[in-house]
């Protein structure tokens, strides 16, 4: 009897424990797209007038798209400086030395809870021979003002879930839409957060370089971003998902909506961008037909993601 049990046990154990095909490790697969650990790290450190300014971004790297920027300012005693006035201007020079900027927070305010100055920049180009990025910081502490300049490298964003797009609306205004969340989406309901910015044409003549009035950007107020997610892959036949919510502005100025991803893979977020009055500034409707074998049509305003 014992022998049977033993033998049977062995047979069972071998059969039971050995699945022919391994099950998918879904959680591991999801984290594949966001390979880096998303933590804030120092990108560079500036020292001037007895103060230290540490600039932190995610992974210590500037990426194309939306970058939240933390500035830690400390004095000689290593005490946090809380009452500084800080302005920030990112400048891109092309091969002809023409200067451009990108959406950014010009005034960088102090966050008492976190003890840093909070800003952001939405880089619209990766550093290359035709794009050199430089930061211009103006810091005023106790009536003492000093200016800092530092070159940075903007890398391409490996995570398409943080992709961005820029376009000229049919009102002639230059707009930027940058995805902020979800960083690592799931096959689920995902809160979709985006920043929407516009370039403000200068109203005054050019002053001394870098003149912030020439590089003015602002958050678009009260707009609506109609959302229609699709899988563009031909085999998916223009597949979409239910229960999505259009993006509307939250109290922090960013835009919030809901996107449902029904499976992993390539997705296109098709948008129609409407101003406060509901007029369409950019974007076209996507046909809802099920078209297997044909690459899905996209709105003229869209962002491709992948997870």
């Amino acid at each position: 009897m014992k022998i049977f049990n033993l033998l049977l046990g062995v047979v069972l154990a071998t059969v039971v424990t050995s699945c022919t095909l391994e099950k998918t490790d879904y959680e591991a697969e999801l984290s594949e797209v966001a390979t880096d650990e998303y933590v804030f790290e120092q990108a560079f450190l500036l020292t001037s007038n007895g103060y230290q300014i540490s600039v932190e971004v995610l992974n210590g790297t500037f990426y194309k798209g939306y970058n939240e920027i933390h500035l830690f300012i400390t004095d000689e005693n290593n005490e946090t400086v809380q009452n500084a006035t800080v302005t920030f201007l990112p400048i891109r020079l092309d091969a002809n030395e023409d200067a451009y900027s990108c959406p950014h927070a010009y005034e960088v305010g102090y966050q008492a809870d976190n003890q840093y100055y909070l800003g952001y920049a939405v880089f619209d180009e990766v550093s290359n021979t035709n794009a050199t990025w430089e930061f211009y910081l103006t810091v005023t502490i106790a009536n003492e003002t000093f200016t800092l300049q530092h070159g940075v490298t903007v890398a391409s964003q490996p995570n398409l879930n943080l992709n961005m797009t820029s376009f000229t609306g049919n009102n002639g205004v230059q707009y930027y839409i940058a995805l902020i969340a979800p960083v690592s989406p799931g096959v689920s309901e995902n809160e979709l957060i985006a920043g929407i910015y516009q370039y403000n044409e200068p109203q005054v003549p050019i002053g001394n370089f870098p003149d912030p009035t020439q590089f003015s950007f602002s958050e678009v107020q009260g707009a609506t971003l109609l959302l229609d997610p699709r899988m563009p892959e031909p085999s998916m036949g223009n597949h979409s998902s239910p229960n999505n919510e259009d993006l509307t502005q939250g109290s922090d100025g960013l835009y919030y909506g809901v996107v449902n991803y029904t499976m992993t893979g390539n997705w296109t977020l098709n948008f129609i961008f409407q101003n406060e009055g509901g007029a369409v500034i950019k974007g076209t409707e996507v046909p809802t037909d099920f078209t297997p074998g044909i690459t899905g049509e996209k709105s003229e305003l869209h962002i491709d993601i992948l997870f």
């Binding site: 085999s235 499976m263 992993t264 390539n266």
Partner: peptide
């Protein structure tokens, strides 16, 4: 699901 271009990422659910 496997996309037609096999170098693309597969789709899973």
């Amino acid at each position: 699901m496997y996309p037609q271009d096999r170098s693309e990422r597969t789709m899973f659910a």
